[in-house]
């Protein structure tokens, strides 16, 4: 079973490499955000896989949980930048939404 987890982990790392294409070359910043978000969800699974390989899941679960919580925060902050900076705030002022 350890081998299954090991190869799943390697495969996940390969998928992260694929997803890293968008953060590196994405035409816009928002594309980069999509890529990083996708990498984050893969990282959560990979952390628990590592825990199972080491037979110490109860330790790695905490990291994964903290990770899932804070990844969300980073994505929200980055998207908030656009809502504020390039926002259509002048139109919103006059009620056009």
């Amino acid at each position: 079973m350890d081998n299954v987890f090991l190869y799943s982990g390697l495969y996940l790392a390969f998928l992260m490499l694929l997803s890293l294409y968008r953060p590196l070359f994405g035409p816009t910043v928002v594309d980069r955000m999509i890529g990083v978000n996708a990498i984050g969800s893969k990282t959560t699974v990979l952390l628990i896989l590592i825990g199972l390989i080491f037979h110490r899941v109860e330790m790695f679960v905490d990291i994964a949980l903290a990770y899932a919580m804070l990844n969300f925060l980073a994505v929200l902050a980055a998207s908030r930048y656009f809502q504020k900076r390039k926002g259509l705030y002048d139109e919103a002022l006059f009620g056009k939404d």
Binding site: L24, R32, G40, T43, L47, I50, Y67
Partner: peptide
């Protein structure tokens, strides 16, 4: 900044 976030994911792993 966003890519640095990805970098820190990898460091954590």
């Amino acid at each position: 900044a966003i890519l640095f976030g990805a970098y820190s994911f990898m460091m954590c792993l």
